[in-house]
Design a binder for these strands. Structure first.
Length: 196
DNA sequence: AGCACA
């Protein structure tokens, strides 16, 4: 707006003496493409008659309304879209048929596992010592002790989750003769021991 | 609390 007053009447050609004449346009330039004015137009004849009857009586009659709303396609039921969405929703069923007490699983939702993780062992605990304690519980499969790094930790594999759980409950907090600290801490391993 | 082996 300031440009108008400061430039109006200014000589833009000193040799001819011509001056600028500036005034406000009577209406703003078009900002948005009106329906059908752009290169790409959505053509949908399926719902046209119903939509046009309602839309034409609205603000479009005022002609110069600066509504930014896109043309058409408001709440008209789009047949193709609804059909696609319904077909996508058919993808979740049939894997919850297992019984609640299914002990065949090696890994369950609550983290139970047929392999146990044993920590808080003494620094000089040996695999043989631990094995002699654990191997007397039913279903015992194999024991591995890993001492590299800090304190040793052990992994004990059982036939199934029930046997692993029984051994864990029986040995939880038990102190080995070699332990210089508290009793051992047993949990379910995060992953099953590699296939025997 | 700390979770490897292949």
């Amino acid at each position: 707006m300031a440009a108008l007053h400061s430039l109006n009447g200014v000589k833009f050609d000193p040799q001819t003496g011509s001056t600028l004449h500036i005034e406000l346009a009577r209406s703003n330039s078009r900002r948005k493409n009106k329906p059908g004015s752009g290169p790409y137009v959505v053509i949908d004849n399926r719902t046209k008659s119903a939509t046009d009857d309602r839309e034409s009586s609205g603000d479009d009659a005022s002609g110069d309304s600066d509504s930014d709303d896109p043309p058409g396609n408001h709440d008209s039921g789009n047949q193709d879209d609804s059909a696609t969405e319904k077909s996508l929703e058919k993808a979740a069923d049939g894997n919850n048929a297992s019984a609640p007490e299914n002990e065949q699983l090696e890994k369950t939702a609550d983290g139970a596992c047929s392999t146990l993780f044993i920590a808080n062992l003494g620094p000089n605990c040996t695999q043989d010592e631990l094995k002699q304690v654990i191997s007397q519980y039913p279903g015992f499969n194999i024991l591995k002790l890993r001492a590299r790094g800090g304190m040793p930790v052990a992994f004990a594999d059982f036939e199934g989750i029930e046997q692993a759980t029984a051994a864990m409950n029986a040995l939880q907090g038990i102190s080995l003769p070699s332990s210089d600290r508290g009793g051992m801490h047993i949990e379910y391993a995060r992953s099953k021991m590699r296939k025997a």
